[in-house]
Design a protein around this nucleic acid. Structure first.
Lengths: 175, 175
DNA sequence: GACCAATACCTCGCCGTCGAGGTATCACGT
DNA sequence: ACGTGATACCTCGACGGCGAGGTATTGGTC
């Protein structure tokens, strides 16, 4: 997840770790802040895997900045993950949003459309938060529980908006 | 997270592990399926912490079922977590939805209202997925990136719906 | 009678993330 | 000259969750 976000942001532009941290925090950290102790080991791991290059820039600011640049292998890995994302990236809203933030890096409208289609399929499947055996429960099944009713109301509104957008996008992409 | 969902479902009714697994999967697994190897060790941990009791029911079905019942300490722990949730439960949509699913177990309208208010405060804060220094970027800042525009459109619609619902609920709760 | 799927529970090793600590430099106020 | 806050990077122990394995029983099929 974090690795994916790093690939995405570095594909936008080379950055040093601290700035990367701020951007990742804004994108996902709005929701789930990212710790120092997570970021730097991840960068090291990606460096060892040759996904990125590190150029130390001494001077200027306080501490020497390590400017991170995506390698060719890094670009390839980003495109691979964008083209064939894990199921979690389709179903988990946090991950899906991150995917969407970088989908423009996949320079192939058909492949982009395929990804959007997977999300649309997921959203249009019958689903519920609660079941009675095989019967999906709805808001009306909780007349005395305003919180669960709210849950359904918010989820329905969100998914309607997104489905509408996905249909628009798919029409535009295949035209 | 998983522990919280278990507390919530067992507060609804005593369940055996397998059924618990299905319910947790429907609530969060819609988004993030939960593995066997996560559930059972968690149950054990909670049993050791006296949050729940286990009664083995031999016979009937295939393997002997372990019916799990929330203890008084378990109920207290659930209420404690509902009353003073970690920040992550307010900001992360997945966690927030789980919280909402069980907020009715907090039998105190004022405390319920306080939790809703925290969420409302979070949603009405200025926020963006992307920043240019201190300036939050908007959909119009990405004229050539339909995916990021979509991101903004979906996020805005979701948050509007939820804010409206929260305001309604808060009026109803304090009346 | 043999086989297989479904039910139900369990173990273990691995990995990503967190949180609390630490280091060093520069800018700024007093 | 001194302290403080911001910048920037790093380490390490702990923990939650995953995935791949395993066991045992029941009920149905060939």
């Amino acid at each position: 997840m974090l690795e994916f976000a790093i690939l995405g942001f570095l594909a936008d532009a080379p950055l040093h770790g601290y700035e990367l941290r701020r951007r990742v925090a804004a994108l996902t950290g709005h929701v789930r802040p990212i710790a120092d102790g997570t970021l730097y080991p991840t960068i090291k791991r990606m460096e060892r895997a040759d996904l990125l290059r590190r150029d130390v820039q001494a001077g200027q600011t306080a501490a020497p900045r390590h400017v991170l640049t995506l390698s060719a292998a890094g670009h390839a890995e980003l495109r691979r993950q964008l083209r064939t994302p894990d199921e979690l990236f389709i179903t988990d809203e946090n991950r899906w949003f991150t995917l969407l933030a970088f989908l423009h890096h996949l320079d192939d409208p058909a492949a982009q459309g395929a990804v959007l289609h997977r999300r649309l399929d997921f959203l249009t499947q019958p689903a519920s938060f609660f079941w009675d055996g095989d019967r999906p429960l709805r808001a009306d099944d909780f007349p005395d529980n305003p919180f669960r009713r709210g849950l359904f109301r918010i989820a329905t509104a969100t998914s309607r908006t997104e489905i509408a957008w996905l249909r628009e996008m798919l029409t535009a992409l295949t035209r």
